[in-house]
Simulated scan of single mutants.
Amino acid sequence: MNLKALITLHFNQLSPELQRAAEYALQNSSQLVVVSMRTFALSAGFKPATFMRLAQRLGYQGWGELKQALIEELGLHDDTYVAKARKLVDQGKTSSLYSEMITAHESNLLRTHDENQRQMQHAVDLLEAAAHTYICGYRASFPVAWSLFYVYRLFNRKVTLIDGLASDSEIYSREFTAEDCLLIASFAPYSRESLQMLQAAQSAGSKIIALTDSPLSPLAQAADCVLLFSTDSPSFFPSIVAGLSISECLMAMLVARHGTEAVTKIENAERYLKTSGAYVPPGKS
């Protein structure tokens, strides 16, 4: 059971002081995993012993065990890409790896389906209400962001991809307003750029839709709407299959919401792609 679930389960049995400490821990989990208990307690205005008691009331032996559990939950443990790659080589199980990968994808998709049924409609509502939508995802999250942008742009002109080319992200973030929406994808380890965009959107009062891997991720804590996807994989690198599935579902739901207007815009875009030569006619190369 993750930290949020544990706190929810025990919350009513906690003293008022421990309830406040638990709320602070959830809201500041990204800080919790990188500082000492004393530093974290001082920043929260509590005595260190308060957080020790909280950890024990949640079933941990102490603060260190709680912190380690959260680190693993956020995907910030020392199981690096290199360590995972070496494990693949050491195991030498190439014959079964294909099936294991597909099985992992299926499991990720099922979990993603179960976690997002309610939030998907909320995401559609926020995007529909936005004066302009900005989309971003850095490094390994970029394919998810690009997929969202490419498809959304077929039927909505008020969409911008923040790609970080030439470190130009501030060109877009300085334009954020309270009427806009930031659709941001990121999973652990979270990129510095994604957190900068998140802070810029918060400062501007923009709505934030986060596609991320944990309800305790820095993105999830700041977002108005959270769409979760699992990145589990037997490979050395996290899987983005479930993240891409969210993007496809979201775009399909938006087209259905837009109705005939979306169909007309898609038709115009498709016609241009054909007449401009971007698409190769059937039978030609």
Rank of each mutant, 00 (worst) to 15 (best):
L3P: 11
A5R: 15
I7Q: 14
L9R: 15
S15T: 14
Q19A: 03
R20A: 15
A21K: 12
E23Y: 15
Y24H: 15
Q27E: 15
S30E: 13
S30D: 15
S30Q: 11
Q31P: 05
Q31G: 09
L32Q: 02
M37T: 08
F40H: 07
S43C: 03
G45H: 09
M52L: 12
L54W: 04
A55G: 08
R57T: 12
Q61S: 15
E73D: 08
D78R: 13
D79A: 08
Y81K: 10
R86V: 01
L88K: 01
V89I: 12
K93R: 12
S95C: 00
E100M: 02
A104K: 00
E106G: 05
N108D: 02
H113R: 11
M120K: 08
M120C: 02
G137L: 07
Y138S: 14
R139F: 15
F142N: 12
V144W: 10
A145L: 07
K158I: 00
V159L: 06
V159W: 06
L161I: 01
I162R: 10
A166Y: 12
E170P: 02
I184E: 09
A185F: 07
A185M: 04
S186F: 03
S194A: 14
L195G: 00
L195I: 03
A201R: 01
A201E: 05
S203F: 11
K207C: 04
I209E: 08
A210G: 00
D213Y: 02
P215Q: 11
P218F: 03
A223S: 01
A223R: 04
L227D: 00
F236S: 13
P238H: 03
I240L: 11
V241C: 08
A242H: 04
S247T: 10
C249M: 15
C249I: 11
L250C: 02
L250T: 01
G259W: 13
T260C: 10
E261V: 13
N268Y: 07
A269W: 10
A269L: 05
R271H: 14
A278C: 12
V280G: 01
